[in-house]
Design a binder for these strands. Structure first.
Lengths: 343, 343
DNA sequence: CCAGTGGATGTTTACGTAAACATTGCCTAG
DNA sequence: CTAGGCAATGTTTACGTAAACATCCACTGG
């Protein structure tokens, strides 16, 4: 900086003013300084800057190895949104979702150049961890509940699940089976609860819950079981991957979708439009979740925020070809090639 | 730090020594300092640290919005591997893959707290950009060629494509059609070139190349065309998503896979094991790519490295049920339900 | 008994920046 | 014509750390 000042014939403070876009600098002087900066290839040293300003302009994101598409989309939106606010994003990967690993990530965080943290994680792993949070570091949590203890931004899981169930009921199905996510997942739990509540509210009897683990493989196994349930005409899968496996199993058993069984997913991953048949599903707006995480954490930083609360991002039903009116009893009536989209 | 020193009854320098694990501190003193650190909740200030040391212990990763699964896996591996070396990872998202955006990312980079950069990007967007790289910032590129100008780590695209084609030829197919990725992509180009070369080397005539854009939707459209090619008994899709769309199109046209047409993909995304039928594909080791990127950039930093070169990460053929011996002429011969896995 | 040695610890300083305060010089109002 | 004010710019200082150097002290060997 001193070199630039010398070359431009000004003081280093003036260089600082120019590089930060502060007022009170003649247009002439500004130009000269900029020229000198270019000539010397000057780059402000961000370490010194952070030291002086007391902030890093950086957000940390803690997440399990980018396993699910939802986390990835959210992360992407966080990065983009942070960049728009002049913030960088530092990744804090947690290899395996154990309490130890999470604690480790949080303690590393203390020495990390980060002003605030966004956690994409189930809440129950967070409790013991946050005690070691450096004071003044704000936290926003995505993919969780517990809005009373943290600021939470999440997809409206319950609303989406409700829409999925209602869609199938509206089509005329007596009831809807549910292929749930793993027990440990709050998202899975909330979707399952909303599924049960919606059925009950509509005066239907919820069938036994079928448990998967988010993977297509687990959906396949569940599908083999469901294929043997003669009463099953409609399945709400807790995510699109499991729906994919489900479709494969039903297909192998010679069941038509949606002719014999309607299937609806959750997430709306890009591939789901190309499943066999294209999957009706609940679209999640991960970009919005990420954006709100950044807004939330920045606003908390500004007002040293105390207020916690949950922001829900609405979902949207995307109707494709895997859902239709009930008709399993018609099985075998027609001889059209199976799985041809009804449309 | 001064407070800790006072509480522990030592000098700040001794605190520094303890916090950096330097030798020359009595076990007694160390314990006292550590106790004081805990009591005061001391965290070393990473800005001051970076300022003093002249390095940030941080790697920047520039990539287009985490669009493809490959990039994500690579990023994940980079983050993990960097953490093991005591480095953090900062994300530099590029919204749209235009030269302007890339230049912007690189110029922001100059002010960013980053010691080195890993670029996950097609090379041709890099050329004009790197001129603005701060001196001393090393670069490693994934997903590209141009090993003569940069250090490059990439999947062995050509080797994988060759294995895919050979697998189908070995099964007895006369030739192999190719559903390629978009023209702008070097990965797509190299896979297509290797496909053509392998066929030529085997004395076969390469059929006309079919172009997609990586999406399942484009694979579907291509599939509708290929279904009308009576000579087509084997297709090598340049990625699994396009293979997915391809499978759907063939299915709609009543063609069995692999009975009538064999399909092989590239990438081995997790879902491909649950396609209809499960997809034979070329597995990419993104974790290894990411790891090598980190190793490469760190070693370049240590030796102020000049040497460029390309490191290729081998692929692996994953045989599932979408490939088999040729048999399109047998169409209609049997009445078994289509798409049941042959095994 | 003393010089010499080496380990443990303290003191000084500089890293690059920006806030706070100081100075300069020009313009305007009285 | 001059005091006062304000815009432009310069000077000083501190941010928290760690390298370099300085000091202290206990112990060893002659």
């Amino acid at each position: 900086m001193a070199d630039v000042a010398r070359l431009a014939g000004v003081s280093s403070q003036t260089v600082s003013r120019v590089s930060n876009g502060f007022p009170g600098v003649t247009e002439d002087t500004r130009r000269q300084v900029l020229a000198a900066m270019r000539e010397l290839g000057y780059r402000p040293n961000s370490a010194a800057r952070a030291l002086k300003r007391g902030e890093f302009r950086t957000l940390g994101v803690i997440t399990f190895s980018l396993s699910t598409m939802g986390n990835i989309r959210t992360l992407e939106a966080i990065a983009t949104s942070a960049a728009q606010h002049g913030y960088a994003v530092t990744l804090l990967p947690v290899a395996v979702p154990t309490q130890d690993e999470v604690n480790g990530a949080f303690s590393r965080l203390g020495e990390l150049a980060v002003d605030a943290v966004i956690v994409i994680m189930e809440i129950h792993l967070l409790d013991a961890a946050t005690v070691s949070l450096p004071p003044g570091v704000q936290v926003v949590v995505a993919d969780s509940d517990a809005g009373d203890r943290y600021t939470v931004v999440d997809t409206d899981q319950a609303g989406g699940a409700r829409d999925a169930v209602r869609h199938l009921l509206d089509l005329g199905h007596d009831t809807v089976w549910h292929l749930a996510g793993p027990e440990g997942s709050f998202a899975a739990q909330r979707r399952a609860n909303a599924w049960r509540d919606t059925l009950t509210a509509a005066g239907r009897v919820p069938p036994p819950l079928v448990r998967g683990d988010w993977s297509a493989e687990s959906g396949y196994r569940a599908g083999l079981r469901l294929a043997d349930e003669p009463d099953c005409t409609a399945v709400f899968a807790a995510n699109d991957q499991m729906a994919l496996g489900l479709l494969r199993a039903l297909h192998e058993r010679g069941l038509r979708v949606p002719g014999d069984i309607s299937v609806i997913g959750f997430d709306d991953i890009p591939e789901s439009a190309s499943f066999l048949p294209p999957l009706t599903t609940i679209h999640q707006d991960f970009a919005e979740v990420g954006r709100l995480c950044v807004e939330g954490v920045l606003s908390k930083m500004r007002q040293d925020g105390e207020g916690h609360g949950t922001t829900l991002v609405p979902t949207r039903l995307v109707r494709r070809e895997s859902t239709g009116v009930p008709g399993r009893d018609r099985r075998g009536e027609e001889s059209r090639p199976p799985f041809l989209p009804d449309a």
